[in-house]
Every structure is written in structure tokens, then in C-alpha cells.
Amino acid sequence: MSLTRLPSESAPAEREGAPRRSTLPPSEKRRRLRRQFSKENITKVLFVVPAALYIVLFFGYPIVKNVVMSLQDYTTKTFFTGEAPWVGLDNYITVVSSNLFWPSLTNTALFTIGSIIGQFVIGLALAAFFKRRFPLSNFLRSMLLLPWLLPLIVASATWRSILDQDSGILNRFLGTFGLDSVPWLTSPSVALTAVILVNIWVGIPFNVTILYGGLQDIPDELYEAGALDGATGWKAFWHITWPNLRPVVSVVLLLGVVYTLKVLDIILGLTNGGPANATQTLAIRSYQESFVNFEFGVGAAFSNILILISLLFAIIYLRANRRQVDE
């Protein structure tokens, strides 16, 4: 891939084999040094071997294995017989023709878009708020990270009690305004919205943190110069903040998409994909085909569709990131 201009090129590392300055030793000593260097090259490689091995085994292998499994009839039987007959594209046909495919694709899109928009808008607003320096602002901002650091399954459990139709605090709160109680997690027409709301809550801290960093990087002089030209308030936002923040925005949004596509814990904890499959996504389908129905081939086919979509956004992300580095 040609889009790999990463920050590394500014690495201050010494060039391999470049002549070493200072005390150049006599020729005999130099030869010994050279021998040491070639041995040293091996040592240098050994620094990365464990990581490389790990990445090959725990990221490379699963991708290949998923592609292979998706072409096989890979079920519980396979674990006893060791046989996984090749079935060509049958699993993909099963996936695409299953009546849960299009709903899960739509839900994935809605879940991702809804989560991203909510996280971003609230995250940007909070980041801008915390950019004004006031007493305790740093402390309050770092406490905001808590939802992001909690185990997602803890967030799910907590929200499940808050959203409970009969006894949850949210419906009791709405009730004090005379509003009817909402079947947040039990009605197929509301469940996806509820799951998105919880995921927005989880994602806000990440957005605040990155966007706050981006806002900090915009030089104050720009605002001072803008103020002289009459650009204040919203005008300053559109003409100064937004154009300068755009590289960071694209990174936040694209990373957000890639991370949201793979969300599983929250949905499993809140609704398990229900009610009436209203919160099925591609990731949930993949999990349930593999680990509930033990149809690993079909699960892998779902996974691969998920990977393809993620990869698309990953490539866009890397391009955006490169542009940001170049600028």
C-alpha cells in the first residue's frame, strides 16, 4: 500500500552502517567492531521477533483462518471428526439470503451512524467547553473519562437497570413529568435507539479527549487575529476552529466508525440482539452463528463482511491520517 507515510520517517535513529564518528579505531579493532555489528543486527531483529510473531499468530492467522472457514462447512462436528468439507461460497449465500442479513446490515449502519453523530456532537461541545480554562477544568475533564474506562459489560448492566421498563430510574424520572413509561429494551421499535444512546454515553469521553487535544493545538493568535476582523462566537467557530480542526475531526470520526462496527459487549449485555432481532448487527450475527449455533463457517462469512467494511474505513482513515501528517 502506498499510503504508509507514517510519523516514523522523522525518527532520529542513526542510519544503519553509517560511519561512526568519534574515535575510529585502528583497522584490526574496526574488523572486530564490524563482526559485532552483524551479530548486533541479529540482536536488533530479535527485539521485534516476539511482537511480530504475536501479530502474525493473533491477527494474521485469524484473518486467514476466517477466510478459510468461511469456505468450509465448519460445525461442532468438525471438532470431533476433524473434517470441514469445502462448500465454496455456500456460506456467503446462506448469509446473504438469510432473513436477518439485511436487517443486521441496516442496524449496523444505523447503530454506527447514530452513535458517531451523538458522540461527536456532544464530545465536541464538551471539548469546547473545557477549552475555557476555569478552576477544576482539568480535573473535571479527566473524571469524564470514567465511562470509557469501565468494562463495557458493567456499563451494560448499569444501563439495563436504569432503562428497565417498570422499575428503572429513567422511566420513573419521565413519569414525574407525566410521561408514559417507555419499553426501552423490550420494544423492537425502541431497542435500537436505546442501545445507540448507551453507546453514545460510552463513546463521549474518547471524543472529548481527542477533540480537546485538537482544539488545544489551534494557536490562540488565530482567534486574536480573527477577533480583530470581527470573527467571534459562531463566526470564529466556522472560519477558524472548524477548518483547523478538520484533520482531527476526520480521524475521530473514522476511528469511531471502525471501533463502533465491532461493538459487541454493549448489545449482548443490553438486549442480546433482541427483542425480535431488533438490535442484530453484523458483529452480533457473527458471534451468534459461531458460538450459539456453532455454524463457524457462516459466522466466519459474517466476520469477513465486517472486516471488508472495516477495512474500507481503515483505508480512508490511513489516508486522512497521512494527510494530517503531511500538513
Binding site: 493473533f58 491477527f59 492467522y61 485469524p62 484473518i63 483462518k65 476466517n66 472457514m69 465448519y74 468438525t78 471438532f79 471502525v258 471501533y259 462496527l261 465491532k262 459487541l264 458483529a283 457473527s286 458471534y287 459461531s290 458460538f291 463457524f296 459466522g299 466466519a300 466476520s303 465486517l306 472486516i307 472495516s310 477495512l311 481503515a314
Partner: peptide, 13 residues
């Protein structure tokens, strides 16, 4: 960026 479920699928076997 690789979804965890992809890793889990392969690691289970």
C-alpha cells in the same frame, strides 16, 4: 482495527 469476533472465531478452533 480488526474486530475481536474475527479473532475469537479463529482462536476457538
Amino acid at each position: 482495527m480488526i474486530p475481536g469476533i474475527v479473532i475469537a472465531n479463529a482462536l476457538y478452533a
